[in-house]
Design a protein around this nucleic acid. Structure first.
Lengths: 111, 111
DNA sequence: TTGGTACATTGACGTACGTCGATGCCCTAC
DNA sequence: GTAGGGCATCGACGTACGTCAATGTACCAA
C-alpha cells in the first residue's frame, strides 16, 4: 500500500480506484489470452476460423503448423480447454470448429 | 502432412488454405497476448487504462494488485516490453500510461 | 550529509509451457 | 480377423514464467 509508512512531503497522486475488472473475470480472461499467447495456436485458430461452418480437419492443420502431430494435438487441446474451439469426431477424422462467442468475449475484454 | 502416405479410401476434407496470419504477425500478436495472459497484469493494465490521460503512479498500483512491489515492477516491465504501456519518471515517482493503439491492434487480431 | 521514500534489478525457487518420440485407441478397408 | 491410418495421451527434456527477499539506484527533505 502506498503511504502506509510515514508520508513524504508531497502526495504522489490520486489513487486509481475504478478498475473495470473483477478478479474472477480477470482470471477467466487471462486464461483466454494465455491460449492465444503462442504463434502456433494463433495460426491453428486462424485456420479453424477461416474454415467456417464446416470446420477444419486435424489432418490439414498439422503440416501448415510446422509442428509434429502430437504437438498440434496438444495445442488444439489447449484451445479447446480455453473454450475457443470445439472438437467433433467424425469417423476416422477429428474436426474442429471455432466458437465465435468466446472470441467476441475476449475482444470485449480489451475495451 | 496429410495424405503424403497412401491415401485411405475417402478424402478427409478440403484443405484450409487461407489463414489470415503471416507468421511474423502471429509472433507479434502472440507476444501481445502473452502480456495479457496473467490476471495480475490484466488488473494492472485495467487500472492504468482507467487512469486515462494523467497516467497511473506505481505507488497506487502495488496494493490493489496484492503482490509485492518487485513483482509489480516485473509485470509492469513485461507490459512495457509488449508495447501496451509506457513509463515516465517524474521526480520520485514513476508513471505509467496506456498505449491505446496497441490495444486496438490486438483487438483487431481477434477478427 | 544523513535518513527515508520510490522504484528497478538480482538471485533463487517451484511450477508451467512447448516440443518431440513412443505408444495406445478407434475407425475403416480388405 | 488383420492391417493400416488418424488422432490423443504419455514420458521426458529444456526453457520460460510468477513470485519473493535482498539489494541497488535515484530522488527528496532536514
Amino acid at each position: 500500500m502506498a503511504r502506509t509508512t510515514p508520508t513524504p512531503a508531497v502526495e504522489c497522486c490520486t489513487p486509481v480506484g475504478a478498475d473495470g475488472f473483477d478478479h474472477a473475470d480477470a482470471a477467466e480472461a487471462a486464461k483466454g489470452f494465455a491460449a492465444l499467447a503462442d504463434p502456433v495456436r494463433l495460426h491453428l485458430l486462424s485456420m479453424i476460423v477461416a474454415a467456417g461452418e464446416g470446420g477444419a480437419c486435424v489432418c490439414d492443420l498439422v503440416a501448415p503448423s510446422g509442428r509434429s502431430q502430437p504437438t498440434v494435438s496438444h495445442h488444439l487441446r489447449l484451445l479447446r480447454e480455453a473454450g475457443l474451439v470445439t472438437s467433433e469426431k467424425r469417423g476416422t477424422w477429428a474436426w474442429y470448429h471455432a466458437v465465435p462467442g468466446r472470441l467476441e468475449q475476449l475482444r470485449a475484454a480489451l475495451a
